[in-house]
Design a protein around this nucleic acid. Structure first.
Lengths: 130, 130
DNA sequence: CCGCATCCGGTGCGATACTG
DNA sequence: CAGTATCGCACCGGATGCGG
């Protein structure tokens, strides 16, 4: 039989995500960071250059783009290839690992986009729970 | 004739996530916020009180917990029920909408936990092969 | 001209004290 | 026990410089 405590124990066993110092939490924050999500999403379609990423991801600053890319590269999710030419040419793409992560993120994003009307409707209801 | 509306429509078709001002981006940031994810995860198992959430989600401050809960409540993902008793008793639970979101988040989290060894391996690899 | 590191100013986060 | 106001600090974003 499955009880609530069983479920909680299950969650805890599966990975102590709830422990502040656990590595999963760190990786999770990288992937789900404000720009990390968008980077993973857009890189699913194709390899992109730095400025191209800046263009498609509206609102990202150069600083944060570079920083987030480095972060994801450090986690092995993104591949960075720099060509020694003028002007500088750097291409970013997803590693197989990154592609898997991007797919999971895409599921969440697609759900949000599909259910956006429902969410916005709830926002207007302002607490008429029944 | 190409108008700005045409361009915007183009972006919307691909998924308006890339537009900085789109509502999806806002909701996405709420759900994938540092503590929002963990709140959704733990509330999957059962209804919890404020202090209980603080206890299970290691590292969250009172301020951010309250703030994130209000944010998710505003999006219709979380249900807040306050009992008018002393001492105060407030219960938080997922709405049906929130449960769906939590399931999508859980997919990503589970993937990260399952593939943590692979990710950590990549982290060590990087840098050596410049 | 492209990629990105750096300095500077504003804003959100974290810890504490306090209210009911 | 649940939640808010306050202060200090890290972090984010913009402009600039560098190097080819």
């Amino acid at each position: 039989m499955i009880t609530s405590e069983t479920v909680i124990a299950e969650v805890l066993r599966k990975g102590d995500l709830l422990a502040a110092a656990c590595p999963s939490r760190q990786i999770l924050q990288h992937i789900t960071s404000r720009w990390g999500i968008l980077i993973l999403i857009v890189l699913q379609s194709k390899t992109m250059r730095f400025s191209e990423l800046r263009r498609v991801i509206n609102g990202v600053s150069e600083r944060m783009l570079a920083q987030t890319l480095q972060c994801l590269e450090g986690d092995g999710l993104i591949n960075r290839v720099a060509f020694d030419v003028v002007p500088p040419h750097v291409e970013y793409s997803l590693t197989p690992l990154g592609l898997e992560a991007a797919e999971k993120v895409q599921v969440l994003v697609s759900w949000i986009e599909s259910n956006l009307p429902r969410i916005l409707a709830h926002q207007h209801q302002s607490g008429s729970a029944g």
